[in-house]
Nucleic acid binder design. Structure first.
Length: 963
RNA sequence: GCGGGAGUGGUGUAACGGCAGCCACGCCAGACUUAGGAUCUGGUGCCCUCGGGCGUGCGGGUUCGAGUCCCGCCUCCCGCACCA
């Protein structure tokens, strides 16, 4: 680690170095030349089958298509470090391989440019976010170009381009204009809902009309309210995650488990506000079920499953006076053991259920010291709402709550159960109310213990059980009434089924399924985001801006900074920056009933909106007539076989998006599918999460970081300027003083060496440490490959049209097979090892003065072309080819040369290798055994022993089992 | 606590159930050199009495044969976590 990144680069050939050696200076010259030529000739322009970008499709019409892409970067001001390109290079190598191997390859790149960090960076620097963002995009684009990636530049765009976000807004309108038909299990346009309501063939969905009057009797405005309540994008007043420090609300996914903002780490509070929501919960079942049809890693699928959080159980209704409390439980079998009921503090029935006075003799633990239930409840509710999630965690989960002063009837026992509110019951999950079964639930047991509530066991714990809640299985006890008995049942599923049957028969409940997934909070109080294509009319109801008026342009303003508050000011109210732009917020429109004044929506969309559908726009980002041409969508993303989900063939990106981006994008895609805009059911058929590159960082005795590049190691100890330092392992960053950039590496070695090094350090999915010192190994490999083709002294091509020897052919075809395997499995390190083997074999077989057979040298160049494309282009041209190597066919291994004439096989005695024998490759078991017995050492080992068994595997080994 | 993944030389890694460590970095030796932080060649898992022995986190099992398959632990990484 003592080596610094920068090394002499552009000096003239040093003394003693052959003039035509593949030095960093030569590599850089070659790379710049080829990058210019690729751009000039449009080498990586991918033809579409139809439309604007279809020129040249004839050439690829008979090829299969491959669409592969990276998660597009967020152009922050920090620039790229050596960790960032790993995934981009992985797709680039794959893209180049697939093209050479005969596919029509689409490999585009774009920029995700709206969002908080860009806005914050702009606020810091005092420049408009568009200016800083576009500068950052230009910088990253230049870095990527210098790496030699084969993106089709014509398809590049940023999510902030009005020509792009116009269609983001268009999709929003489609979602706003749709509702989820539960019977059909899919989204449909709201016009169809209205038609069915008008025709009387459909009733409004439960909960969409609080008045409960028949549809035909509703006023126009009330009808619109009912329809709005059905929409997939809807306004909703509910407790949301309000982050005063950022001045915006956040989605559940953007809040960390300890109740802070993922961006900025500010406290987040639950606060009721009216916000735009996306009804992703309607798709919970399909989002869950279709995971099984995707070629994604188990870990990402499992994370999505956990996030969706499907639970099956039962709804059970408890009578409480003239009200009904509905609870959700996964254990209806334990209903006989329910000894109290708990509502979430925010539950809508709390106020109505709260009694006027405590009965005489109320346990003081139940009242929290308040004079009346109402006082106790209101105090508890206030306390719960003011507490951030973080505070809740800090209290080590001690159970708190208060009694409402009322009871509810256990439907199966008739017993009167006290009703509490407690913050261990969460609003928004299930019904926001539970039946508490302390005998079989740990949390309920803790609460019962703290409040002196009775415990009734309904599952017999095993002998020796040490008390507390018993959550295991066992025979049912104490579970018998005149109407139903579960006693003696030992199978949990059977007990659940029996109780559920009784609940249904008696009308007290039914089986149901709930999800942890909540609807997606879709509005932000930010400037730097897509404006909503929505205006409000005189009734205060939202109206869609007509498609013909899209895009709704983000107005240019002087003051785009968000209104933020003290971190802990939980009662502050969001103020979107756009609400200050008064000349923009009011607008006169004709929405079919004459020109009228409207008020614009001043929230903006969250960062995730632009990334939800960008893969579709790559197909033709310049199309200003439609989001995507359906024919292009079918060609690039459509199902390959009936039942196939379709989607991008390879999507590479970081694990950090396992839930957020990937779940939102799947949701939007399914809506677009339901509405008929895309034929594919999923956006990303195959997902690969590339590993991270980490690095060592070093701190001195004061705890300050010291430049990692200048730390020296001796005997396992590390020092900087002669003083010992501590080593830690983790992220790469400027502040950690261990930053190494691709530009530095390209300056020291050239892009090809950097590419080969990054690809050689392990399978794409694996995380790995950065080691600047090891990069030189890749440089040496490329130098040796260069030397196979070019005479370092004269610069002449040193290949000859002569037949290679059999050894050479075997080495070549073994390498071809290995490289193909590595490419297919994204284990480029294996492919590079095989290329190195072949190169070493050729170097050994052909001295500096011996020409290398063209029929071996050329395939070697083709093998390395996806990895080191500039070097390969240069050698390919010097070998006399005029067309780019990018379109040359990738070598195919010939089976004949993958088998040897003779093979060395190991001879084992009792599983231990004792000798090697050389036999013809096609020697059968008998011949193998005979050869083995003839071998001197084997004969000695077998002498005087009984051979009980011989296992002879042709081509592999012989094993004598002796005693 | 629950879920997912991983443990192989000094380091990154490789190995259809069949010779553990391919290919590299580093290190050692040599060549060419005024010089080497360049380049090239060779060596390099550990132990050894030079016969060999031991080795893929630990302990069992299946098998003629296990880094690989099965069971039970340990450690590390990632995610979730009062979700009824």
């Amino acid at each position: 680690m003592s080596q610094t990144a920068s090394q002499p680069t552009t000096e003239p050939a040093e003394e003693g170095v052959p003039p035509h050696r593949y030095t960093p200076a030569l590599a850089q010259r070659i790379e710049l030349e080829w990058q210019d030529r690729w751009e000039r000739e449009g080498t990586f322009h991918t033809p579409n089958p139809v439309g604007r970008l279809s020129a040249g499709f004839d050439r690829v019409a008979d090829r299969p298509k491959t669409f592969l892409m990276d998660m597009f970067p967020y152009p922050s001001g920090a620039g790229l470090h050596v960790g960032h390109p790993l995934g981009y290079l992985g797709t680039d190598v794959t893209s180049r391989f697939r093209r050479m191997d005969g596919d029509n390859v689409l490999h585009p790149m774009g920029y995700d440019a709206f969002g908080l960090p860009a806005e914050q960076y702009a606020v810091q620097t005092g420049q408009h976010p568009r200016v800083t963002t576009e500068a950052n995009i230009a910088a990253i684009r230049a870095q990527l170009r210098r790496l030699g990636v084969d993106h089709d530049e014509r398809r590049t765009f940023a999510t902030i381009d009005p020509g792009y976000y116009r269609w983001t807004q268009w999709i929003f309108l489609k979602i706003f204009g749709a509702w989820f038909d539960e019977e059909a299990g899919k989204a449909r346009p709201v016009e169809e809902l209205v038609a069915e309501l008008d025709a009387g063939t459909r009733e409004p969905a439960p909960g969409t009309d609080p008045s409960g009057r028949p549809w035909a009797e509703l006023s126009d405005v009330d009808k619109r309210r009912v329809v709005d309540a059905h929409r997939l994008a809807y306004l909703h007043e509910a407790p949301v995650n309000w982050c005063p420090g950022l001045g915006t609300v956040l989605s559940n996914e953007e809040v960390t488990p300890d109740g802070r903002s993922e961006r900025g780490n500010f406290p987040v509070f639950r606060r009721p506000l009216t916000q735009w929501m996306m009804r992703i919960t309607a798709y919970a079942e399909r989002l869950l079920a279709d995971l099984d049809r995707l070629d994604w890693s188990d870990s990402v699928k499992q994370m999505q499953r956990n996030w969706i959080g499907r639970s099956t159980g039962a709804r059970i209704r408890f009578a409480a006076g003239d009200r009904t409390i509905e609870v959700f439980t996964t254990r209806p079998d334990t209903l006989f053991g329910a000894t109290y009921v708990v509502l979430a503090p925010e539950h809508p029935l709390v106020a109505e259920l709260t009694a006027d006075a405590w009965p005489d003799g109320t346990d003081p633990r139940w009242t929290a010291g308040a004079a009346t239930p109402r006082e106790a409840v209101e105090a508890y509710q206030r306390q719960a709402s003011r507490r951030s999630e973080l505070d809740r965690q800090n209290e080590s989960r001690e159970k708190t709550g208060v009694w409402l002063g009322t009871t509810a009837a256990n439907p199966v026992t008739g017993g009167e159960l006290p009703v509490f509110i407690a913050d261990y019951v969460l609003t928004g999950y299930g019904t926001g109310a539970i039946m508490a079964v302390p005998g079989e639930d740990t949390r309920d047991w803790e609460f019962a213990h703290a409040f002196g509530l009775p415990v009734v066991r309904t599952v017999q714990p095993p002998a020796g059980f040490d008390g507390g809640a018993y959550t295991g299985s066992g025979p049912m006890i104490n579970s018998s009434s005149e109407q139903v008995s579960l006693d003696g049942l030992t199978d949990k599923a059977a007990a659940i089924a029996a109780m559920t049957d009784w609940l249904v028969a008696s009308g007290h409940g039914e089986a149901t399924t709930t999800y942890k997934l909540r609807d997606w909070l879709f509005s932000r109080q930010r400037y730097w985001g897509e404006p909503f294509p929505v205006v409000y009319d005189a009734d205060g109801l939202p109206r869609a801006v007509p498609e013909s008026l899209l895009p709704v342009l983000l107005p240019d303003v002087d003051d785009y900074s968000p209104k933020t508050f003290a971190d802990d000011d939980a009662t502050s109210t969001p103020e979107p920056p756009l609400s200050r732009v008064t000349e923009w917020t009011t607008v006169e429109l004709d929405l079919g009933d004459g020109p009228r004044p409207y008020r614009r929506e001043t929230n903006t969309m969250p960062n995730w909106a632009g990334s939800c559908w960008y893969y579709l726009r790559y197909l033709d980002p310049g199309d200003d007539t439609q989001m995507v041409d359906p024919e292009l969508e079918r060609y690039w993303l459509g199902p390959r076989t009936p039942g196939d989900v379709g989607g991008v063939d390879l999507y590479v990106g970081g694990m950090e998006h396992a839930v957020l981006h990937l779940l939102y994008a799947r949701f939007w895609h399914k809506v677009l599918h339901d509405l008929g805009y895309v034929s594919s059911e999923e956006p990303f058929r195959r997902l690969v999460n590339q590993g991270y590159i980490s690095a060592y960082a070093y701190t001195d005795e004061r705890g300050f970081y010291v430049p990692a590049a200048e730390v020296v190691e001796e005997g396992g100890r590390f020092s900087f300027e002669g003083r010992p330092v501590n080593r830690e392992y983790g992220k790469i960053g400027k502040s950690l003083k261990n930053m190494v950039t691709p530009d530095e590496m390209i300056g020291a070695y050239g892009a090809d060496t950097f590419r080969v090094y990054e690809m050689s350090t392990g399978p794409l999915e694996q995380s790995r440490p950065w080691d600047t010192k090891a990069v030189v190994g890749s440089q040496r490999l490329l130098q040796r490959i260069w030397r196979v083709v070019v005479d370092e002294g004269t610069g002449a091509v040193r290949v000859a049209d002569e037949a290679p020897g059999e050894d050479g052919l075997r080495a070549l075809h073994k390498a071809i097979a290995g490289v193909r395997d590595g490419m297919a499995t994204l284990r480029f390190n294996v492919g590079i090892a095989r290329i190195a083997e072949l190169t070493n074999a050729l170097t050994a077989a052909y001295g500096a003065d011996t020409p290398v057979p063209r029929s071996v040298a050329e395939p070697l160049v083709l093998l390395v072309a996806p990895l080191a494309p500039h070097l390969a282009e240069e050698l390919w041209a010097r070998l006399g080819h005029e067309e780019s190597v990018a379109w040359a066919p990738f070598p195919v291994a010939d089976e004949r040369w993958l088998v040897e004439d003779t093979v060395q096989v190991a001879v084992q005695v009792n599983g231990k290798v004792r000798a090697q024998v050389t036999v013809p490759a096609d020697a059968d078991a008998a011949a193998l055994e005979a050869a083995a017995r003839d071998e001197e050492k084997v004969a000695a080992q077998l002498a005087g022993k009984t051979v009980r068994r011989v296992v002879a595997v042709p081509g592999r080994l012989v094993n004598f089992v002796v005693s």
